[in-house]
Simulated assay, not measured.
Amino acid sequence: MPINPEARPILLARWLFAVAAVIVIMVIVGGITRLTESGLSITEWKPVTGALPPLNESQWQAEFDAYKEIGEYQLVNGPAGMTLADYKFIYFWEWFHRLLGRFIGLIYALPLLWFWVKRQIPAGYKPRLLALLALGALQGTFGWYMVRSGLSAEMTDVSHFWLSIHLLTALFTLAGLIWTALDLLRLAQIPNARPARLTGFAWTLSAVLFIQLLLGAWVAGLNAGLASDSWPLMQGRLFPEIDMSRGALYALTHDPFLLHFLHRWWAWVAVAALIVLARKARVFDRRASIIIHSAFGLQIILGIATVWTGVNLWIATAHQGVGALLVAATAWGLHLIGRGK
């Protein structure tokens, strides 16, 4: 693919890596928001005015009164004696999470417009960059649908299905940013370089990792991490008791014990696939192999520690953050083996 004289692929690659880094931070903050049960603290979506938090006590009280109308307050936090100070704590994390989302939108959309006007985008990359922008917009939309799923008098939490859609879209966007940035770096080195392709192995590994990430999102959404505080056994046995009274499909998508069990053991299938990826990537860049091994090794350790500590806030948050880094490392490895000669 020829490169036009005005194009600045290295500059674009650095920009995309920077956006990817902020998305990793966003995933970490999202984990804290989830673990502190802060996601339903803001009951409205105000794209512009919502960037400012309440500025006086009357505004704080109005937000708190709106929160009192939903099931999470009426059934959980209200009976527990939540005060306005308690509410301000959970409000902060949800507000900060949304603020980061707005910030990511700005640091992606404004530079993209600049590069476009300055004709610095290499030929063939505009559709991909626009697709990534659309994914970011979808991410915000899915986030609001997730919050809205928990805003009723009967619900005390968001839908774990919407939570998984929200999280997986973020991780897919992260992988797309890394992949595109790596394509641009290669284009800067080899002017006629073709974009890397997804091999058959890449599709297989992606499917394995997708299942593990989906299970992890459902575990988080259903608080299934609390189903056991021991490892490798659950409830003193390898295979836990599972409620099948509503059918196998319902159990597979809702039973916290089954989902916890699947998440902890499917992880080893993912590890096996990632070891193969690391060996393949090592041929092209030894650093990628080291990073992939380090990421999944640390992720396994943090996962076990999360269970043993009864889902400690900071260990569980680190588990989610390293998960995002593992996705980025996987994208790097798959890109290496997907390059043309």
Rank of each mutant, 00 (worst) to 15 (best):
D157C: 03
T173H: 04
G225K: 01
T173W: 06
R186D: 13
G136I: 03
Y145N: 06
L130N: 08
R119E: 14
L113M: 15
L112D: 02
L187Q: 06
P240Y: 02
G216Q: 01
G150K: 04
L168R: 00
L215A: 07
L182H: 09
L184Q: 08
T180V: 10
D229V: 04
L187A: 11
G236F: 02
L110W: 09
I242T: 06
T169E: 04
F161L: 11
I190G: 04
S159Q: 05
H166Y: 07
T156Q: 13
A207T: 14
V117A: 15
R237A: 15
L215M: 12
A202F: 05
T173E: 02
G236E: 08
T169G: 09
K118Q: 15
G124C: 09
L112S: 03
Y145M: 11
V158T: 01
Y108V: 12
L171R: 10
W203T: 08
V158E: 00
I211D: 06
V208N: 07
S245T: 14
G221F: 02
Y125G: 09
I165E: 00
R128M: 14
L133M: 13
S149L: 09
L168F: 08
G200E: 08
R237M: 12
E241C: 10
T169Q: 04
W116T: 15
D243N: 15
L112H: 01
P127H: 10
V147I: 11
V208G: 04
M234I: 13
L222H: 06
R148D: 14
D183N: 14
S245W: 09
I211L: 15
L213E: 03
I165M: 07
W218C: 00
G140P: 06
M155K: 14
F210V: 12
I165N: 00
W231K: 00
D229Q: 11
H160N: 04
G216M: 02
A175M: 07
D229R: 07
F172T: 12
A131W: 13
G236A: 07
P195C: 07
W179T: 05
N192I: 14
I242P: 01
L198E: 12
M244A: 12
M244T: 14
G150L: 03
R237E: 13
G200D: 08
Y125E: 14
V208W: 05
K118E: 15
A217I: 11
I178L: 07
L151D: 13
S228C: 05
V117D: 10
G150W: 01
M155W: 02
S152D: 14
L171H: 13
L184K: 06
L182S: 09
A181V: 10
W162H: 05
A137E: 10
I121A: 06
P111T: 09
L130E: 10
T180P: 09
P232S: 01
A220R: 00
L135P: 06
Y145G: 02
G200A: 10
L214K: 03
I211H: 11
E154T: 15
W218G: 00
Y145D: 04
A224F: 00
H166M: 07
Q235F: 05
T204D: 11
P122D: 08
L215D: 01
V158R: 00
T204N: 13
Y125S: 09
L135H: 10
A207N: 11
M244K: 11
M155A: 15
L138T: 03
V117C: 10
Y108M: 12
P195Q: 03
A131F: 15
W144D: 02
L113R: 12
T169N: 12
S152R: 12
F161K: 04
W162Y: 11
F201L: 07
